[in-house]
Design a protein around this nucleic acid. Structure first.
Length: 179
DNA sequence: TTAATGATGGGCT
DNA sequence: GCCCATCATTAAA
C-alpha cells in the first residue's frame, strides 16, 4: 500500500476531501499498527467563516497555514481532540476534517465521530503539525477501495456557513457519524 | 423515541 | 467572559 504524497494534498481542498474517502488512516502506537478506512470528511478553507483560519494566523490556527500534507489537531470542548489534514500550498489556511473511519486492522472500534476516533487512536496535540506523507506515528495510504457512492451535504456542529455543502461521506457505511 | 443538558478547558473578543 | 468543527447521560414525551 502506497502512502499519499505531498502533491495530493496541495490540490483544491474540496477535491482532497472527496478523494480522501476510501483512503487509509494509519496510526502506529508502540508495536501496534491501527488502520482505518476514511468514510467521512469535511472541508474548511480560509475564506470560510466556520474555519479556524478565517480570522487569520493565531497560535492555534498557525498549523493550517503550513504546507499541505501535515496534520492539524486541535483541542475542543475541554475534553476532545479532532484531526485534520492540511491542504493546498503554504499560506493558504485550508484543511480537511477527518470525521469517521471504518476499522480495518488493529482491533479498535467506536470511531464514528471526529472526537471518538481521536480518542480511540490516541491522537492528541502532541501530533499536531507532523508530516503524514511518510511512515512514522501517523500517515495516510492510498485508497483501499473506491467508494461506491459519495454523498455531499452540509457540515455538522458549526454556527457559521451552515449552508456550505462541504461534508462528504460514503453512502450506506455504518461507521459514518449520526447527523 | 427524541430533546435537553453537563462535562471541562483552551482560544479568542 | 463567552464560545466551541463533541459526546454521553439524563429527562421528557
Amino acid at each position: 500500500m502506497k502512502i499519499l504524497k505531498k502533491g495530493f494534498y496541495k490540490q483544491d481542498t474540496l477535491k482532497v476531501a472527496k478523494e480522501l474517502l476510501g483512503c487509509v488512516l494509519c496510526r502506529q502506537i508502540g508495536g501496534i499498527l491501527y488502520k482505518g478506512k476514511i468514510v467521512e470528511t469535511e472541508g474548511y478553507t480560509q475564506e470560510d467563516p466556520a474555519c479556524h483560519a478565517y480570522r487569520g494566523v493565531t497560535k492555534r490556527s498557525s498549523t493550517m497555514f503550513e504546507e499541505g500534507g501535515i496534520a492539524y489537531i486541535y483541542f475542543t470542548y475541554g475534553m476532545y481532540h479532532c484531526m485534520n489534514v492540511v491542504t493546498e500550498k503554504q499560506g493558504r489556511g485550508c484543511a480537511v476534517l477527518i470525521r469517521a473511519v471504518e476499522p480495518l486492522s488493529g482491533n479498535f472500534s467506536n470511531t464514528n465521530g471526529p472526537a471518538k476516533l481521536c480518542r480511540e487512536l490516541s491522537i492528541t496535540r502532541t501530533l499536531n503539525g507532523i508530516d503524514i506523507t511518510k511512515k512514522g506515528e501517523l500517515w495516510i495510504e492510498e485508497r483501499f477501495e473506491n467508494p461506491k457512492k459519495i454523498i455531499t451535504t452540509t457540515r455538522v456542529g458549526i454556527k457559521d456557513a451552515v449552508d456550505y455543502p462541504w461534508r462528504f461521506y460514503i453512502s450506506d457505511n455504518k461507521w459514518v457519524s449520526k447527523k
